[in-house]
Each structure stands twice: as C-alpha cells, then as structure tokens.
C-alpha cells in the first residue's frame, strides 16, 4: 500500500515543527564561510568542502540552506554503491553533494567549492582502462 495518501493532521496550530521555530540560526553563518571559500577558489584555485553532517543543523536549517543557495545549471548523478547527486547551486562553483547508500539512505552530505567536483573527473587510471576497452572494440571491428 502507499502511504502517499496519509493525511493526518497532528498539529492543531498553523506552524510546522520545522519552520521558523526549528531554525537553529547556524545556517546563515555558513554563507559567510562559503563566500570565503569561493574567494580562495578564485585566488588560489583551491577547492574545499564543508561536511554538513558535522554541523549542528536541523532539517529545517538544511532546507533553508538549500533553498537559499538555489539551483544552478548542472546536476550530475553518480551511480555507484548507491546514488550520489552533485548539483551546482545558483552560485557557480558551489556544489551541493549528497551521497546515498545502496538502500537509498543519505550517508553523507557536503557543500563542495570547486570548479568541478573531484568525484566527477575521470581518473587517468580509469581513462587508461577505457582506452584499452576502446582499442579492444576497434580490434573487434577489424
């Protein structure tokens, strides 16, 4: 059965538990930190990342942060050991990274500041394997 249609009203009041009253106030500070990281990226080309699980953020904080940063042009999905999504935010260079495990649970969450997230780049060793595969395909043709 699907639970989609559960429409149980538990709250008498208007506000949801995770709206304004659930914001810890820790999220806005992160924007400053991000700005600093972006400056560093431009100046020294140094990518950085913030581990969102390591910060005392409520789900409401995360919602706020995600909504505030907005959506960018690119999003990448990695299918490996569970799904991972790497989505650029409205601030180019700032990426919202979510790793899921095989059963679909979120296992880690980062904000990465990079021109391209590390994970997206193909590794030379893997490219080498890819080349070998290509050559074998060509060999098969002939």
């Amino acid at each position: 059965m699907s639970l989609e249609d559960i429409r149980v009203v538990v709250d008498a009041g208007e506000s949801s538990p995770y709206q304004a009253d659930a914001l810890s106030g820790n999220a806005p500070v992160l924007l400053r930190e991000l700005a600093e990281h972006v400056r560093q990226l431009m100046a020294a080309g140094e990518p950085t990342a913030i581990d969102l699980n390591a910060l005392p953020l409520t789900p409401a904080d995360l919602d706020w942060l995600k909504a505030t940063l907005g959506e960018g042009e690119i999003s990448v999905t990695l299918h490996s050991d569970g799904e991972s999504t790497l989505a650029e935010t409205a601030c180019p260079g700032v990426w919202w990274v979510t790793h899921h495990n095989e059963s679909g649970h979120v296992v880690s969450r980062f904000i990465e500041v990079a021109f391209v997230p590390e994970l997206v780049k193909a590794h030379p060793e893997d490219v080498k394997t890819g080349l070998e595969y290509l050559e074998s395909l060509i060999f098969d043709l002939s």
Partner: peptide, 29 residues
C-alpha cells in the same frame, strides 16, 4: 578494480567514512 570497484566508488566510500569519523572533508582524500 579487478573486482569492479571504480575509483569513484572508492573515493565516495572514503569521503563518507571521513564524515562518519567526524574528520574534516579533506581527510577523505
């Protein structure tokens, strides 16, 4: 790699492990 584990998977595993161990993200790499 021979078992079919890509470097990306391994990197992801390490990043997550670092997060679980409360290490800074750079420690993942």
């Amino acid at each position: 790699a021979r078992r079919g584990v890509t470097r990306r998977t391994f990197f992801k595993y390490c990043a997550t492990l670092a997060s679980l161990m409360a290490l800074p993200p750079s420690a993942g790499r």
